[in-house]
């Protein structure tokens, strides 16, 4: 199995002390859908400028955790969260914190590419900035181009920025969605199985992009694909489902260790493909 250690270029650069932004702490997080507890008592620290992969069998609450982080979980009727998610010292679930603001700081890329069909490629990328109140077209033009370049999409779309975002291929659409989320300069990017709807070539391009984006963001990715977790992530957190069907964190640590020498038997069984 390929791990980070096999590919030296993937090692995360050590951040300069005192300049940390995007430090994310989950403290005793419980997530519920009405009375059903989907996530039990998860505490996890996420490092900035690193990719953390959340892995585990279906139904273990990985996606729910992701949606708890940017407060998308609560948009589902009856859903609620206990515990706290702390970003750079601020509890995102504090009463006076606005969920809308949180989502501008913590971007999200979804399983299925979801460009807005009524918007052009340009408008898709600009939409987040417009939400944040940016009106100057010079600023918008510059940031749209920079974001598309960053998402390695600029050369493919620069001549058709006015065409609908849905006219692109699946892989391009997903890169458009990544460009859209980085255009608002978030601190954290959450990716919920971003490659599960894509072909292998597109998947590779997205993975390269993630590794490239790691320099500036805290990236959290949910994936079913353990090779992917091994290829791109620095830290892996393994989740499983308890007897009460609630997902919980089994263990987390550097990806190389989780894949080569996990502490828990359950983790070993999963990463070696014996269950899940």
């Amino acid at each position: 199995m390929t791990t980070v250690t096999d590919r030296p270029g993937y090692a995360a650069p050590a951040p300069a002390p005192g300049t940390e932004a995007g430090v994310l702490d989950l403290r005793s997080v419980n997530a519920y859908y009405r009375t059903f507890r989907a996530v039990r008592d998860v505490s996890l620290s996420l490092r900035p400028r690193a990719i953390t992969a959340l892995i585990g069998p279906s139904g273990c609450g990985k996606s729910t955790i992701l949606r708890v982080i940017n407060r998308m979980h609560e948009t589902i009727p009856g859903a609620r969260v206990e515990g706290s998610v702390v970003l750079d010292g601020v509890d995102l679930y504090r009463r006076d914190v606005s969920a809308v603001r949180v989502r501008r700081t913590i971007g999200m890329v979804f399983q299925k590419p979801n460009p807005f069909p009524a918007m052009s490629i340009f408008e898709n990328v600009a939409s987040g900035m417009r939400l944040a109140g940016e009106k100057k077209s010079s600023v918008l033009d510059g940031r749209v181009e920079a974001s598309l370049r960053r998402a390695a999409l600029w050369d493919e779309v620069k001549d058709k920025l006015r065409q609908p975002g849905t006219s692109l291929s699946g892989g391009q659409q997903q890169r458009l969605c990544i460009a859209r989320s980085i255009a608002v300069e978030p601190e954290v990017i959450l990716m919920d199985e971003p490659c599960s709807a894509l072909d292998p070539v597109s998947t590779l391009r997205i993975e390269e992009l993630m590794v490239e984006l790691r320099q500036d963001y805290t990236i959290v990715i949910v994936t079913h694909n353990m090779q992917q977790a091994g290829r791109v992530s620095d830290v892996t957190a393994f989740f499983s489902m308890g007897d009460d069907r609630a997902g919980y964190l089994v263990e987390s640590g550097p990806t190389s260790r989780i894949f080569s020498a996990p502490t828990e038997k359950l983790t070993e069984d999963y990463v070696s493909g014996r269950f899940g």
């Binding site: 999200m108 807005f116 987040g128």
Partner: peptide, 8 residues
């Protein structure tokens, strides 16, 4: 969700 997730 794509739009809400951007802070709309």
């Amino acid at each position: 969700e794509g739009h809400t997730g951007m802070g709309a």
